[in-house]
Structures are given as C-alpha cells and as structure tokens.
Deep mutational scan, measured.
Amino acid sequence: MSIQHFRVALIPFFAAFCLPVFAHPETLVKVKDAEDQLGARVGYIELDLNSGKILESFRPEERFPMMSTFKVLLCGAVLSRVDAGQEQLGRRIHYSQNDLVEYSPVTEKHLTDGMTVRELCSAAITMSDNTAANLLLTTIGGPKELTAFLHNMGDHVTRLDRWEPELNEAIPNDERDTTMPAAMATTLRKLLTGELLTLASRQQLIDWMEADKVAGPLLRSALPAGWFIADKSGAGERGSRGIIAALGPDGKPSRIVVIYTTGSQATMDERNRQIAEIGASLIKHW
C-alpha cells in the first residue's frame, strides 16, 4: 500500500482519535458579512469528516447552483462504474471539434489522439474542462443518470439537468442544476469515506481534487503551510461562485467545507476574496 493510499485508508482512524471539535460562531459572522459585502445569498456548511456531524452552517438547506462543483460527483459516478466493471479508466475516447464547448483548455489539445477516461476526469476536476465533463456525462448516460446515481446514494436534493455550459445559467428560483450545502457536503463525505467506492477509487477521487489547479484564489489562499486540501470550485452566471473541499491540518483532511453564493453584482475577484476570507476565519478558529 502506498503512503497516499495509507493516508486515505486511515482518515477515519486518525479522526477518531482527534480531540473533540467545537464550532466557532466567528466564522458564521464572516459568512454573514460576506453576504453584506456581496449583496447576495451565501450558503455555508462545515462537517466533521469522521462523524458527519454538522459543526457550523448557514442557509444549509437553500438551493444554490452547483456550477462546476458537480464534476466531482460526476467522476465519482464514473469511478463507481469502474468498480462495477462497467468502465475502464484506460479506455480512450475520441471526439471532434464539434464536441468542444466553451472553456476546454485540455480537451482542445487532444482532438487528434483523444483522451482516456482517467485523463478526462483529471481534466474535468483539476482544470474544470467543460468538454471533458460533457464527454464523461455521455459515458454514464447524461445528466439524468448522474441525478439517479445521487438518488441511489441517498441524495434526493442534488440534481443535474443540463450539460456544460448551460448548467451554469443560475436563474433565480430555478431548481435545475442545483444542490443544497448540506446535501453536497453529505454526498461528498460519502464519496470520500464511505463504502460506495473502493479504496482505490476513493484515493483516485481525492487525488484529482488535491491536484486542483484553478481554485488557488479561494480556500487555498488562506491555508497555512502543512495543511491538506482537496477541492473543486465552480463559477456561473449572475454572480455565482462555489467551492467544495476536504481539508485539515497535519497533512490530512478532517472536515468537509461547502460554500456557495449566487445573485451578486460583485466582480469575480471580490467573490473570490470573500470566500478566501471565510476560509481564513475557519482556519483561525479551527
């Protein structure tokens, strides 16, 4: 067993022997301040990774656009098919120029040779490549099948209805392509620590998230040296922004954090800054 596999296998073990965790309302004060600064709703939840206990939450059962955070769930569904012998990570998928959609920095470079399922998941999570996500959605049967996968996990809230990039439209009061912070946090925890996926697939999923290259201005910008984070960000229309993450000190994750916002007129930089400040408060009061 590799060191990384050992780390993920012992996530519940280490967490069980940690000192009790206590909620700190100071972080919620910052979440509410972010709402004021952005002029928009902000949803927040913080779960203990081992027990699933909610440590703090704000608007945990209000719907927010998922945006690209759905790509972690998508690759979880792909990995479940791999575990069941219905898919192979090494299978190569070929596609054409007509398949390319807006923001496809990886797939646009491989029109000639195609990409493997493993490479597509890596591109979808680490670079948020939209064509990679659409190609992977095709392998599982489309958005409705991802929703069905989530329902089978016990998540009857999260739903995907459309493809990239239309799913980022974020129309107010439109339930399409949305989740709730509580539902997303619980589902992410199941994917990373539950028995739904094999140990190898859980490790692969967290490795992809740990290698995320496009979430630097968010929670990662607030992390002290030595902290662990595996995350996936999302951005959408109407001032929408979000991030889902597993993080913790001492090089291992111990909490799940989900943050979503929508309806702001603020710039992307300002949305990023507010999420980073929430992260800084979380870490300060850990």
Rank of each mutant, 00 (worst) to 15 (best):
T27W: 13
T27D: 03
T27F: 13
L28F: 12
L28E: 02
L28T: 10
V29A: 06
K30H: 15
D33Y: 14
D33M: 10
D33I: 14
A34K: 03
E35I: 06
L38N: 04
G39F: 02
A40N: 07
V42G: 09
V42E: 02
Y44R: 03
I45Q: 14
I45A: 13
E46K: 03
E46C: 07
L47D: 02
L49R: 01
N50C: 01
S51G: 06
K53H: 11
K53L: 08
I54G: 04
S57V: 02
F58N: 08
F58V: 03
R59H: 09
E61M: 02
E61H: 09
E62F: 10
R63M: 07
M67W: 11
K71G: 13
K71C: 00
L73G: 00
G76N: 01
G76M: 08
A77C: 06
A77V: 12
A77S: 07
L79M: 02
R81M: 08
V82T: 01
V82W: 05
V82K: 02
D83A: 08
A84V: 02
G85N: 09
Q86W: 11
E87K: 05
E87A: 01
G90Q: 11
G90T: 05
G90D: 07
R91W: 07
R92E: 09
I93L: 04
I93P: 00
Y95A: 08
Q97H: 01
V101A: 15
E102C: 02
Y103T: 07
S104M: 07
S104C: 05
S104W: 04
P105S: 06
V106R: 04
V106Q: 09
T107P: 07
T107G: 03
E108R: 07
E108N: 11
H110V: 01
T112G: 05
D113V: 01
D113E: 06
V117G: 04
V117I: 09
E119G: 02
L120T: 04
C121H: 00
A123M: 04
A124L: 07
A124P: 04
A124S: 06
A124K: 02
I125Q: 04
I125W: 11
T126M: 12
T126K: 14
M127P: 10
S128W: 03
S128V: 03
D129R: 01
D129N: 03
D129E: 02
N130I: 10
N130G: 12
N130R: 14
T131S: 12
T131A: 10
A132D: 05
A132N: 07
A133V: 04
L136Q: 08
L136M: 05
L136R: 06
L137P: 02
T138L: 05
T138S: 10
T139A: 09
I140E: 09
I140N: 09
G141L: 04
K144G: 06
T147N: 03
T147L: 05
A148W: 06
A148F: 02
F149D: 03
L150R: 00
L150H: 03
H151D: 02
N152M: 12
N152L: 11
G154T: 06
D155R: 08
H156M: 10
H156C: 09
T158Q: 13
R159W: 09
D161M: 01
D161A: 02
D161E: 01
R162M: 00
W163K: 12
P165S: 01
P165C: 00
E166A: 12
E166Q: 11
E169F: 00
A170N: 07
D174L: 06
D174G: 07
D174M: 09
T179K: 03
M180S: 13
P181E: 04
A182H: 08
A183N: 00
A185V: 06
A185H: 08
T186Y: 00
T186F: 01
L192T: 04
G194P: 09
G194H: 00
E195H: 03
L196R: 10
L196I: 07
L199M: 12
A200V: 06
A200G: 06
S201H: 13
Q204E: 10
Q204C: 03
L205C: 08
L205G: 05
L205T: 05
I206C: 13
D207K: 06
D207F: 03
W208L: 04
W208N: 04
M209F: 10
K213W: 07
K213G: 10
V214D: 15
A215W: 04
G216D: 13
L219M: 13
L219Q: 07
L219S: 13
L223M: 15
P224W: 15
I229P: 10
A230P: 09
D231W: 10
S233G: 15
S233H: 15
S233Q: 15
G234W: 09
G234T: 11
A235P: 13
E237K: 06
E237R: 01
R238D: 00
R238K: 15
G239N: 00
G239Q: 02
S240N: 03
S240H: 08
A246Q: 11
P249C: 08
D250I: 14
G251M: 12
S254C: 06
R255N: 09
I256G: 13
I256Y: 12
I256E: 07
V257Y: 15
I259W: 01
T261Y: 14
T261W: 14
T262L: 03
T262W: 03
T262C: 10
G263L: 04
S264P: 00
T267H: 11
T267M: 12
R271C: 08
R271M: 04
N272W: 08
N272G: 13
N272V: 07
R273V: 13
R273Y: 09
R273A: 10
E277N: 06
E277Y: 05
E277P: 09
S281R: 11
S281W: 09
L282K: 03
I283V: 06
I283S: 11
K284Y: 10
H285N: 02
H285I: 09
